[in-house]
Design a protein around this nucleic acid. Sequence first.
DNA 1: CACTGTGAATGCATTCACAGCG
DNA 2: CGCTGTGAATGCATTCACAGTG
Lengths: 242, 242
Amino acid sequence: MPRTNDRSNHRITSARPTETAPSSLSRKCRGAAATRPAPEACVARLSLYVRELTRLASQRVGFVSSRRLAGQLGLTDAQVRRDLSYFGQFGTSGRGYEVQRLHDRLTTILGVSGRTWHVALAGAGNLGSALLAYRGFRERGFLFKVAVDTDPQKVGRTVQGLTVASASQLPLLVRRHDIQIGLIAVPVESAQAVCDQLVESGVRAIVNFAPVRLEVPSSVWLRVVDLAIELESLAFYLARTK
Amino acid sequence: MPRTNDRSNHRITSARPTETAPSSLSRKCRGAAATRPAPEACVARLSLYVRELTRLASQRVGFVSSRRLAGQLGLTDAQVRRDLSYFGQFGTSGRGYEVQRLHDRLTTILGVSGRTWHVALAGAGNLGSALLAYRGFRERGFLFKVAVDTDPQKVGRTVQGLTVASASQLPLLVRRHDIQIGLIAVPVESAQAVCDQLVESGVRAIVNFAPVRLEVPSSVWLRVVDLAIELESLAFYLARTK
DNA sequence: CACTGTGAATGCATTCACAGCG
DNA sequence: CGCTGTGAATGCATTCACAGTG
């Protein structure tokens, strides 16, 4: 009797304040921003909402209810409304949310509207290439400006319109291209060294795709994406079913 | 003042019972199994523990304390002890946990000891190739028996010692190789169709790497790994720092 | 005395349920 | 009437704190 799980994602161990908002008294003016800092899980879902709204907008859907939005995403309607309520009041009673308007508001809140982010990729192997090829990044304004690799075979090659540079150039290139975000897609052994280089060169946020824990100073945002964990934990449930 | 987050992972929306354990009265016999079903977050961390223990064993470390294990993984000592306590009592007061023994016990519990799982990969692009190349899977007994792709360019090629078959062969190959787990690394457009094929062919667990929600019958375990979400949510925090 | 194992306390996230609005 | 926005209730996960043990 296993049930389908809906969205596996995002687990955080130590709390971290999201905003310095006073969180004092509730606002009353209509359309005002939310009162409390948004939970991390909710921020993560923001990109899901944006994706779905982009899709709906391209289908010329004008309004969408929390129920319908939830259905598409595998969430509950209450959760959608709660999530959105952290950022403001976007809906109309009886009608739902205006797709284009909500899309625009959410992209602004997510920080991916009317601006671009400069991204550097360390490791141009299969995983790195997959990341370069992911179309969603460009759509959201994440621009790959730099890709490096240690493998002389790969250096000089062009992947997705970007020329792979030598790993030794990383600090130089990060500074030259004003990189804000670094992606680590190198083997476990070199992940920490690459991470240190990124940090020293001024990168403020890092996503680590290597299955190791990395150390960074507290001024840097670090996220981990572990490709294997979901598969590995499936064995546990499979072994216990039928 | 951003803080480093430690482990991003795994968020579940609907609860699902993990065991049918009675959860009635506490056992008293030493070394007995835990009383309550293990939380999903804790099951996901099981593979982290196994990885670290494998590393420690290879360094001939005999004992490890919850504190040290936690430090390596970016968790707290209390959490490590709590997690392990769901599965039994493995430690020795004043000494800690015997590395090899704990490793063996956890791999058994995870369902990756003394047996293998047969895995099929749909989509042999960059991401699919990265998954085929991941060494951890083989180490844990996950064997890729099948890889398919729709691209005639890719069919017939050998990736990591496995020959890519035509996508039309998927149902046949799944049955022939007694596949239990399917990995979906195809574009969004074809993800649901591939998923349906896997399900109809008898696959009982699926990991979806495409950024869409998939529908499966409730008898099938479904997990999602979203490569983009962590990066996208970083913009939110970056836009709010300094 | 250093460490485990675990009730109890806390904190975070989801869901309920309903008042209020267009 | 259909749907939002949100207090209050619930449920899950982490942390505290300490009794108990080799």
